[in-house]
């Protein structure tokens, strides 16, 4: 009972408290509100710790039992240890070894990893973008107008292309995205209410 009841009750109290606070600008209400916001941040440090310990354990076990690819896990553990220790001991601002590792190891690799998608998007455009239906045709037409209209060569081809591109973005695209925004907004509100009233409990996990 306590295993589910306590978290559900806490969730309800916190949800109602923070929602009501919006309408009650009393000093006491503000005091509670500011503390809760601080506490949310402090708790998330431990959520990160759970992630670091969890991933560290997975790779440590792989090394210990010599599972396939265990040598790669040594690289992960070494990266974690070096970056983590240098960060904690040496600081994180510019000019520290931590900042150097971020700038010349982490950031280039992450950027490059993401830029691989440029190659995949060419392949996807070539293999996957088939005009099989009217909807696919509309999608393709809009994509082409934006792709051409947002680069300088579009204007070089014809002056009307960037104008058409701006119109597509500011009128029909805005209409569609506004519909989605309102839909997401209503969905977020209903999900929040479901969480507060304990209807949505997936965050509790399974027993």
């Amino acid at each position: 009972m306590a295993k589910r009841g306590v978290p559900l009750a806490l969730c309800f109290v916190m949800g109602v408290l923070m929602a009501v606070q919006f309408f009650v600008p009393h000093p006491l209400s503000r005091y509670v509100y500011e503390n809760v916001l601080d506490w949310m941040q402090i708790v998330s440090v431990f959520a990160l710790a759970v992630g670091v310990i969890g991933l560290g354990r997975i790779h440590w076990r792989r090394v210990v039992v010599r599972r396939a690819g265990w040598r790669y896990s040594i690289a992960t553990l070494a990266g974690l240890a070096v970056m983590g220790i240098l960060g904690v001991v040496g600081g994180i601002e510019q000019g520290t070894p931590y900042a150097w590792l971020f700038r010349y190891v982490q950031a280039p690799m992450q950027s490059t990893m993401m830029s691989l998608l440029a190659f995949f998007v060419v392949s996807a455009a070539y293999r996957g973008f088939r005009v099989r239906t009217r909807e696919a045709g509309i999608l393709l037409a809009a994509a082409m107008v934006v792709m051409l209209g947002r680069v300088p060569i579009g204007e070089a081809i014809h002056r009307a292309i960037p104008i058409a591109s701006n119109w597509v973005l500011n009128v029909p695209n805005t209409a569609a995205m506004r519909g989605i925004t309102i839909g997401i907004g209503l969905g977020a509100i209903s999900t929040s209410l479901r969480i507060i009233f304990g209807v949505e409990r997936s965050y509790l996990g399974v027993e």
Binding site: A118, V121, V122, A125, Y126, R127, G128, F129, R130, V131, L140, M144, M147, L148, R150, V151, P152, I153, G154
Partner: peptide
């Protein structure tokens, strides 16, 4: 931006080529 222009043209070409083939 010039490289962006040429890359976009290439991708549009790929879409057309893929559809013609399809």
């Amino acid at each position: 931006m010039d490289a962006q222009s040429v890359a976009h043209l290439l991708i549009i070409g790929c879409i057309i080529l893929g559809n013609v083939g399809y």
